[in-house]
Design a protein around this nucleic acid. Structure first.
Lengths: 209, 209, 209, 209
DNA sequence: TATGAATGAGATTTCATTCAT
DNA sequence: TATGAATGAAATCTCATTCAT
């Protein structure tokens, strides 16, 4: 009675463990084809316990997305601190790094989940849109504005559509997910190529757009 | 008592009708959440008849993808016939037109379906990869090579990764699908912006990449 | 208009053709697992035409049983005409011949069908019972009585249970149907063995039953 | 509001309960015509629970057969222990008893199921053939051999076809199943009659077969 | 007659969710 | 907390039967 059990799991870790398990299973099977019991088993808990933390399967899905999103947002915010870099320096440095880290991660899964299931969860999509997408766009937009003011780059439609800066990762992610088995590519090289092209376009003195 | 006739007996049209209905329902609900009966009802036929033409729900899915793909492939091939245009003329002309027509269409649905369900249907993905993706990439690559030979544009990594030329439509498509309700954008303008940037990068004399 | 079409099928043959086809298909698949369309195809007609002759699948089933039964009954009746044979002569001659012909035929299928589906078709079973079973039993009983009168054989319980004379075929039929693939036997030899044993028992002077 | 508890939680008993229910329903309807829900209802459980214990309807079928077979095999083996009886004593004693007990039981149902569905389940038939049929045949064969050695009985074709010893039960079982409603018989008397005839044939000194 | 497209009831099976223990 | 037996709604797919042609 007095000895503390050594292997008692702390209940605070449970939700995170289950969310991680869910991500892993969703990754292989997709949302609809994943059975709750499979997630529970992979997390090493019972179905009942899972339902103690997540009221529904949909809740679990949302948690997966959120758990993926939160650290990216933080990373994004941190990246902008170092702000006395030139546009090119920033894009080739912190920005590239961030983008690559997304490509490295489970982004593929999350993107697939979001695209497939997103339209059925408007609240989740709104959250993701605001927290990640708009935030990222604002950062890029601010960067470009500063660059134009400083005379480093010319003004372009990128100001209106900063999401274009991310289209490289998107293509690479989806390619990995769908076609890599048939036609493998070096996704980092592709992402880099896209950024290079963007930088080149931003610097082009002759363009009159 | 002249009720609507129960039978319509239109053997030839049925598969196309049902495929169209399926596309429409998949669009709203996604593949997994779509019930076969809903497709049947939308097509104005019975469940049984649907199964007369499509052995399984998966068959129906494949038909949806194929029915979308086939006309695009044709359009793509046709577009290349006019080949004495400059790179810029081609990109701003036929290429933009093709891309826009994709954005206009049900592309969003098909892309979402492919991304969500593709990994579970490798044969279908392979087919799509070969028939559409690689074909499109080859066309762009050939175009760029000719342009470099002619001295119109500089050589870039686009030669290795022609899929980047399509990343604009991809972003626009996915944006429409997920975020338009929260944050609507002018997707055609965005696609055009992307193409402009690419053209600008291709023309940039100063870049030494 | 005047030429008689050479290949016109006469409609009188149709029911028999369809019944034969049904027997063949039932034989391989059993009643429940047989699809009406399979019977139609094997008979070389359309589903609609089949339903012109047989109102339901059950009708078809009954027809199969009846078509099998009728010729047997006739054969049975004919067999008893030659009545001046001794019991042993009759049993070894016409009786054995008849029994063997059953074992040769599609009896297996019909027996299986009757056992499996019979309880659900009391009218059919009654018909079969009266037309075949009781008739056969009466014939055997009469034969045995005559034999006892003539002092050829002793009286036995076979008089009360003449169906025992047929138990050999039954065992052989069912064995063929179920176990032959695992453990093949010479069914005719077995039938003969059974009849021999019966004859021996009928002749046993020492028995006092 | 003290309604009947929805859950009973009796893991160990469930399979046996469900199997028994299945036997009962198969008995009345046959395998194919039985709906899984009917079995579940009769067992007092939900469809879902049934599928927790039996992966498919076919599994359920196999369980029914096995649950019937296993105790018989045991009984059969036990019966042979008392081995210093004469052939006649054994056949009239333990053998008759065993056979009668089969006729008493649900044998009719199981035999009908086996005959009707057996051909579609070769593994099950093989199991039944080996565990029951061949075992029973071996026992009878050994018995007869010993009897011949001891001079109690003459050698007959029963040695080659011991299954003939069981043909009485078979006829009686099938008669019960099909014709009893039209023409009831005393099946035990018939079984006894068959055994009597067999014993008489085995004892017949005059036979020269 | 003859066809086979069309129907829809119904069967099996799965799985998110509940709750007695 | 923790479990997993139990539920039942719902989904896919089949096939006997009908009937316009």
């Amino acid at each position: 009675m007095s000895a503390t059990p050594r292997f008692r799991r702390r209940k605070e870790d449970r939700p995170a463990e289950i969310t991680a398990a869910a991500l892993a299973v969703f990754a292989r099977k997709g949302y609809a084809a994943t059975r709750v019991i499979d997630v529970a088993r992979r997390a090493g808990v019972s179905k009942g316990l899972l339902y103690l933390y997540f009221k529904t399967k949909e809740d679990l899905f949302k948690s997966v997305i959120r758990s993926f999103v939160v650290p990216r947002v933080t990373a994004l915010r941190t990246a902008v601190e170092d702000s006395d870099l030139t546009v090119e320096e920033f894009l080739r440095g912190p920005f590239t790094q961030l983008i690559m880290s997304v490509a490295d991660s489970d982004a593929e899964v999350v993107v697939r989940l979001l695209i497939a299931e997103g339209p059925k969860h408007p609240d989740l999509t709104a959250y993701y849109c605001n927290e990640v997408i708009l935030e990222g766009m604002t950062i890029v937009r601010n960067l470009l504005e500063k660059g134009v003011e400083r005379g480093e780059i010319r003004p372009t439609a990128l100001h209106e559509f900063p999401q274009i800066m991310f289209s490289g990762v998107l293509v690479s992610t989806i390619w990995t997910s769908l076609f890599n088995r048939h036609h493998p590519i070096d996704s980092k090289a592709m992402i880099k190529a896209h950024i290079d092209l963007m930088i080149s376009a931003l610097h082009n003195k002759d363009s009159d757009l």
